[in-house]
Design a protein around this nucleic acid. Structure first.
Length: 756
DNA sequence: TTTTACTTCGTTTTT
DNA sequence: CGAAGTAAAA
């Protein structure tokens, strides 16, 4: 029995490819993750690569965790010594032990987008920049672009000459970086850029990591930006064992600096590279693939590939247009209900995907109304909610106190009657002595002109001192509880707004338990470790796809996931593709949206249902949008339901007055014709919409040919006895007591277990 | 210093 | 439409 059993020819070629650069072009659903995981296992068990020498980079922390676990179930706990993480976590780890070389204290913190905005606001104030002309947001996005391109202020200065706007950006960039440095903070982009800077300026450090990471594997390579590319290039240049996996058709992060050329030009960077294409799809039905292929074929400059499948043709994708977004939501919900009632599939098999987070609300309302359990992934990140950020700010101040931003955030929360006036005085004092704000506050009594305010401040500093004692003598969970207790935080929330207070308290409790479980799982971890984890974890990482709930999320979040039944809501020009990408005139923007459509469609295993609304409320006003061009790009033989014909000239005055009037007229006409859409009893019209009753079996995980008590054989661990099998929606978790290696828990689909 | 009432403004997408 | 920011009042 060998590691490549059960893989197709292309997959096993990829798994067993020789050393050196390797590009795996993996279409949607072609077993990309599986191949990458097996490649790692192969390197360890067949080529005797020390796991210590392996670095694998994935897109989310969750994907990293799963990959590691799966490799471990193939080759054993030894694999624990490899690094499997996101770019950001990997770079954080590198910076933690080396950042002092770059002039930062190694207890640095990470600023999120809110923090960045606060800093930029102050920067603009200091530089007397009119934030009406130059919005903080756009300055920050300019800086972000620069950082992703590895352009530091000195470099930027060269291209600024003669361009007034750029001169302004440059001044902000400088001041912003200085402020961050003063506060011992880095932003998301810095994490990567500083790592590259470290490698470039300290060859000995680079050499150390090169020696360590002789084998590098990168997932979702199409979404890497220039800084990430450079970081990997520097590390991989010596041994050149770089394996990248990706799909140029699924590159959807251009707005965040992702450079699609990184994957398109891989062979130019590494002429000796082996290139393998995985085109067999194991996920979707032929109809769904045909539809998706037809859409993506409209993009230029892609690496030609044609997904195919052995799956039976299944149901055609369906499209439906409704008069309003409300009816659209109503339809989706009743369709989900219908699926579940007919026993076709549970709620957990259904996902509703949309372009913008704002769309979730209306669908949520209908789901609540129908009593269907659901989960929303994304939206406002848990850790960026105001109440959570307050507590985290306390933790940061307790942890170091170097970060003025956090001090300012909580110094008067809850109210301690410490206002801006006094804070300014303390700030002046701090600046004149080159101290941090908090350090100055500790000497409040020495600061002239404070008067009674000085005692108010010492109340605050005393509080922090007390809390620090708790940090040193208790668990993290307890510390968080003490903060809430000593600040009367719950009282503060209740007084503030009665509407959301309960939710907020709920969130606070959630944080307490998160803190508690963190210190439980990593007993020797410090407060800094917790803060770091919190900064880098996304909602996607915590999303639970296992429970039997309908999942709602953006198309971006859905990348890498799959669901038996997928709803794509809001298929309208102006929403998807977004208004911005249509009016920018840049065809690249539309292409990115098209890739997003491709990603969305290929998430579906068995059924794909696309919907649109003729009229939709968008930021206060009703918009009339035509059906998305992406829907029209699907050949009619691959889609059921009426797709209104688009005009032949696509770029025609989208959004012009005349066009909108016309659409508004036809809208009222259609509403008048059928004044009672009776949406909730919509079952009757489904047949007309082209949805037939399915005969497919529920997609439970494939049955296993062994059960508890059976003797099984693992290709590496040898013989053992199955002690338990836990069925999860996605997979079976099998526990085996191996004769020679003891008890292991593993995923059935990954661990190659054979009944003896 | 804090509260209130008013204006403005904006929307992709996320590590 | 709603959040968030600003100006004026208490």
């Amino acid at each position: 029995m060998s590691l490549t059993d059960g893989l197709n020819i292309k997959q096993s070629e990829a798994v067993t490819a020789p050393d050196g650069p390797l590009l795996i072009l993996a279409g949607a659903g072609s077993g990309k993750t599986r191949t990458l995981t097996y490649r790692i296992a192969y390197l360890i068990s067949e080529r005797y690569v020390n796991p210590y020498n392996i670095l694998a980079v994935t897109f989310t922390n969750k994907a990293a965790g799963e990959m590691k676990e799966r490799v471990m179930s193939l080759v054993g706990d030894d694999a624990d010594r490899m690094w499997v993480s996101t770019f950001h976590s990997a770079c954080m780890r590198i910076l933690r032990s080396n950042i002092s070389l770059l002039g930062y204290d190694d207890r640095f913190t990470v600023y999120d987008t809110d923090d960045q905005k606060t800093v930029m606001k102050n920067v603009c104030k200091r530089l007397n920049i009119d934030t009406k002309r130059y919005k903080e947001r756009s300055i920050l996005s300019e800086i972000s672009t620069l950082k992703n391109e590895l352009i530091d202020p000195a470099e930027y200065e060269k291209e600024v000459i003669g361009d007034f706007n750029k001169t302004v950006y440059l001044r902000c960039y400088r001041e912003y970086q200085e402020t961050l440095l003063k506060n011992n903070a880095v932003d998301f982009d810095d994490i990567i850029m500083l790592t590259v800077k470290l490698f470039r300026e300290y060859p000995d450090v680079l050499e150390r990591y090169r020696e360590r990471f002789r084998y590098i594997l990168v997932d979702e390579y199409q979404d890497t930006n220039t800084a990430q590319f450079e970081m990997i290039r520097l590390l991989a240049d010596k041994y050149r064992n770089l394996c990248v996996v990706g799909d140029d058709d699924q590159s959807i992060y251009r707005f965040r600096g992702a450079n699609i050329r990184n994957i398109l030009d891989f062979e130019e960077h590494y002429p000796e590279a082996t290139v393998i294409k995985l085109e067999q799809n194991y996920r979707s039905t032929q109809y769904i693939l045909d539809a998706a292929n037809a859409v993506i074929a409209n993009n230029y400059g892609r690496k030609e590939k044609r997904l195919w499948t052995e799956n039976k043709s299944g149901k055609k994708p369906v499209f439906n247009q409704f008069d309003t977004a409300y009816e659209e939501a109503e339809f989706i919900v009743s369709d989900i209900k219908r699926h579940s009632r007919s026993g076709e599939c549970g709620y957990g098999s259904c996902a509703v995907l949309y372009r913008t987070n704002a769309q979730s609300r209306i669908i949520e309302e209908r789901l609540i109304n129908a009593g269907i359990p659901y989960n929303v992934v994304g939206g406002v990140n848990f850790y960026s909610r105001a109440e959570i950020k307050d507590i985290l700010a306390y933790l940061k101040v307790i942890d170091s106190g170097i970060d003025d931003l956090s001090v300012r955030r909580i110094v008067n929360v809850p109210k301690r009657s410490i206002g801006n006036a006094t804070l300014e005085k303390v700030q002046d004092y701090a600046e004149s002595r080159d101290k941090s704000l908090f350090a100055a506050m500790c000497e409040a009594s020495d600061i002239p002109g404070l008067g009674k305010a000085a005692s108010k401040i010492s109340v605050f500093t005393d509080l922090i001192a007390v809390l620090r004692a708790y940090r040193d003598n208790g668990t993290l969970g307890e510390l968080v509880e003490r903060i809430i207790e000593l600040t009367d935080y719950e009282e503060y929330l209740k007084d503030m707004d009665d509407e959301k207070a309960d939710d907020r308290i709920e969130n606070i409790n959630e944080l307490v338990s998160k803190a508690a479980s963190f210190s439980e799982s990593r007993p020797d971890a410090t407060l800094s470790d917790f803060l770091e984890e919190v900064a880098l974890v996304s909602d996607l990482d915590n999303a639970d796809m296992e429970s039997e709930r309908v999942v709602l999320m953006t198309l971006h979040s859905a990348k890498g996931l799959e669901f038996p039944v997928v709803y794509l809501a809001g298929m309208e020009d102006g929403l998807f593709p977004g208004y911005m990408s249509i009016s920018s005139g840049d065809e690249e923007d539309i292409e990115e949206e098209r890739r997003l459509a491709y990603v969305g469609m290929t998430r579906a295993e068995r059924e794909l249902i696309m919907t649109a609304a003729k009229a939709r409320m968008l930021r206060g006003e009703t918009q009339f949008n035509p059906v998305s061009r992406f829907v029209s790009e699907i050949p009619s033989e691959c889609i059921d339901g009426y797709v209104p014909r688009r005009r032949n000239d696509p770029g025609d005055g989208y959004g012009t007055r005349r066009r909108v009037d016309e659409m508004a007229r036809s809208f009222t006409r259609s509403v008048e014709k059928k004044p009672a859409p009776k949406p909730s009893s919509g079952m009757g019209s489904f047949a007309a919409m082209g949805i037939r009753k399915g005969s497919d079996k529920v997609s439970a995980p494939a049955e296993l040919d062994y059960s508890v008590g059976d003797r099984v054989r693992h290709f590496k661990f040898g013989a053992g006895t199955v002690t338990s099998i836990v069925k999860e929606p996605r997979d079976h978790k099998v526990t085996v007591d191996f004769d020679a290696h003891g008890v292991k828990v593993m995923y059935a689909s990954f661990a190659k277990l054979k009944k003896e």
